[in-house]
């Protein structure tokens, strides 16, 4: 029995060592995640079948996903102000609840405290030491992942923003075109981070990196790897691939929250502007992040810092 236990322990150590992460190097993309883009009011083509939908107000949306650095700063502030708390290795916060429709198999989401960020999850790119959060080395400008919808919404609420609705998200991705992808009807492998893109960034730095820094696909060359500009008509980055993004709507009867944009795990067809993914609001993943929207003219400085 002892031999078996020793063998299992050594095997476990060996297997774990295979996944041990190599130190990441910070890669500067030159894209400032504090920047917002204005999306003007008007009609656009929504969904695969291009139904004309009107959004009759202007709004602004972040040009990149919220980064680990931004989210770490937020957590530190929110902990200080007491809007979130840590218990059982998880960041928690309050949610006022979703309206309950008593639909078949509907899960009820009553008012209460819900998980925001699982601190011990190895996929999280934040360190938590001495009561302070900080991004793991090299991950400061990567998208914040392993954050639940509750955690994403709490970030937006904290700064007076909101999560974009699905329609707002899709308009920001497609503009007023009928494009399949944010920039056209095809996607090149050096234009976005998706499963077939052979993500050279990942190969450069290790096998479990998966994400690329926000705004990585901007036409710049990194160590000889030439990227193509993967931006939307309004100048947003990473609206196709890298990480899925939470959207704000609560869908009645089911309460799933919808995610858009595809991720590094997706085949290219999931990077088109209309496919949906969804999960319960407590779901977190290494391939799931978010960005925020807000009403225009709300120009106060974003408190998050992008410097590494």
């Amino acid at each position: 029995m002892r031999t078996l236990q020793t063998t299992l322990f050594i095997s476990l150590l060996f297997i774990t060592s295979l996944f041990a992460e190599k130190p990441m190097k910070f890669v500067e993309t030159g894209i400032n995640p504090k920047t917002w883009a204005l999306v003007p009011a008007g009609e656009f083509y929504f969904g695969q079948h291009q139904h004309v939908v009107d959004i009759d107000y202007d709004y602004e949306i972040m040009i990149t996903d919220v980064t680990n650095r931004q989210y770490a700063n937020y957590l530190n502030e929110a902990l200080e102000k007491g809007t979130v708390y840590i218990e059982r290795d998880t960041v928690w916060g309050h949610h006022p609840g979703d309206p309950f429709d008593a639909y078949l198999h509907e899960w009820e989401i009553p008012a209460g405290n819900y998980p925001h960020v699982p601190i011990s999850n190895p996929g999280l790119r934040l360190d938590y030491e001495g009561g302070m959060f900080s991004p793991k080395t090299g991950y400061g400008n990567h998208p914040m992942v392993e954050v639940s919808w509750f955690g994403a919404k709490a970030y937006a609420d904290f700064y007076g923003y909101r999560l974009p609705t699905e329609k707002e998200w899709e308009k920001a991705a497609r503009g007023t075109t009928t494009n399949d992808y944010p920039w056209g009807n095809t996607v090149q492998r050096n234009q976005a981070n998706f499963v077939s893109s052979h993500n050279l960034f990942e190969k450069m730095f290790g096998d479990v990196v998966k994400t690329t820094p926000v705004g990585f696909y901007n036409g710049k060359s990194y160590n000889g790897y030439q990227t193509m500009e993967g931006i939307t008509p309004y100048g947003l980055y990473d609206m196709a691939g890298n990480v899925y993004q939470w959207t704000g709507d609560d869908h009645p009867k089911v309460h799933y929250r919808y995610m858009r944009g595809g991720s590094y795990q997706s085949y290219e067809y999931s990077l088109r502007v209309w496919p949906r993914n969804s999960a319960g609001p407590e779901h977190t993943s290494m391939s799931l992040g978010f960005r925020c929207a807000r009403t225009p003219l709300q120009m106060e400085a974003d408190p998050s810092d992008t410097s590494e």
């Binding site: 899960w107 899925y244 997706s266 993914n277 969804s278 999960a279 319960g280 407590e282 779901h283 993943s285």
Partner: peptide
């Protein structure tokens, strides 16, 4: 395992 799967897993 409906609650452990459909509630937790992403649709994809």
């Amino acid at each position: 395992k409906l609650e452990q799967i459909f509630r937790v897993w992403p649709a994809r």
